[in-house]
């Protein structure tokens, strides 16, 4: 009797708790569980794993038990003879890409936006978007095949103009140009989609009023369409700059060869080679962390500049 009542005393608050839990809706938590597990295992666990950059990682000891070495690997990287080459190559290729690759989708979108809806607009869009869906490996294969000094079509075409064959892939001076313009070929069309979306939101009444006021097409693009896409431009610019040191390494890795290494060696591919091919885990993790820090600083700086100058920012 005494025991039973004691039991009841215990279950009563427990039941209330269950009801409260029900109000919290545990089913919503079940729905987010796969995602939470995914982000913990593949994003947060590696963030913890980054401490090997400050340790001498020994696989048999594991991440936690490996001995601490402080900034040894960072110092080793900063003092290495290739440090400035890596920075120069990484910045060089990406800034070049940004300068050429950022405005072109905007210009294409503004031009496409002036076309009347119909077959030729649809056709132009379908064709220019298409290269975006070609894999990076096929892209690399195309570049290598087209630029071959003796069999590539590019050298045959410039041969018609009387220019001697150029061994593009083995000449370090050509590497950045190859990377940038092949990227422009592949991504300009698709990059215009997001600007076209912003342009579709422009109120036609603005254009009608401007026409009545005698504004030319160019003036209307300049004073109506461009201001309408400025926020999109700013956001994309921030994201691009904030990703500057991590972009395109999959393609660069494919286009790299010993002969163009002096300009194609960038931080991200260096991390891959040092870490996974040479097994220098701690050193490569330190270089990778350095790379990520530069990225984060760039992102914050650009975001701040953007919010000061244009009132548009990520946060």
């Amino acid at each position: 009797m005494g025991l039973a009542s004691q039991n009841q005393m215990q279950t009563l608050p427990a039941r209330q708790k269950v009801e409260k839990l029900h109000k919290v809706d545990w089913q919503l938590f079940v729905l987010i569980t796969p995602a939470v597990i995914f982000f913990i295992v593949f994003c947060y666990a590696p963030m913890y794993g980054v401490i090997i950059a400050f340790k001498d990682y020994i696989p048999s000891l594991g991440i936690w038990n490996s001995p601490w070495v402080g900034f040894k690997y960072f110092n080793q990287f900063f003092k290495s003879y290739y440090f400035w080459d890596l920075i120069k190559n990484t910045l060089g290729v990406q800034v070049y890409y940004l300068i050429v690759g950022f405005p072109l989708p905007i210009i294409l979108a503004l031009a496409l936006n002036e076309m009347k809806d119909g077959f030729s607009k649809k056709f132009s869009q379908t064709i220019t978007y298409a290269p975006n869906f070609i894999s990076v490996v096929v892209m690399g294969g195309m570049i290598i095949a087209f630029l071959d000094p003796s069999t590539g079509i590019i050298n045959h075409l410039i041969g018609f103009l009387g220019i001697k064959p150029i061994s593009f892939m083995s000449d370090p001076r050509w590497f950045k140009t190859i990377y940038v313009w092949s990227g422009v070929w592949q991504t300009t069309g698709w990059g215009s989609v997001i600007y076209l979306a912003a342009l579709a939101g422009v109120d036609p009444a603005l254009h009608e009023e401007a026409i009545v006021d005698g504004a030319s097409k160019l003036q209307r693009i300049w004073h109506i369409n461009i201001p309408a896409i400025v926020p999109t431009m700013v956001i994309l610019l921030i994201l691009n700059v904030g990703n500057l040191f991590a972009m395109g390494y999959e393609k660069i890795l494919l286009l790299q060869n010993p002969l163009n290494m002096s300009s194609s060696n960038v931080i991200a591919t260096f991390v891959y080679k040092q870490g996974l091919l040479d097994g220098q885990y701690s050193y490569a993790a330190a270089v990778g962390l350095f790379n990520a820090l530069i990225n984060a600083v760039l992102l914050i700086v650009v975001n701040r500049i953007a919010s000061k100058v244009s009132d548009t920012s990520l946060w």
Binding site: L28, F29, I32, A35, V36, F39, V41, F42, C43, Y44, A45, P46, M47, Y48, G49, V50, I52, Y57, I63, G242, A268, V271, Y272, G275, L276, Y281, A284, A285, G288, L289, N291, A292, N295, A296, L299
Partner: peptide, 25 residues
């Protein structure tokens, strides 16, 4: 919890362990 969960995920867009730690995991 939606704001919390969203931020928990958004953080990983800008911070990540990088190639080597991910490989080790």
């Amino acid at each position: 919890g939606k704001t919390w969960v969203t931020n928990f995920m958004l953080v990983t867009m800008f911070l990540n362990g990088g190639l080597i730690p991910t490989y080790l995991i």
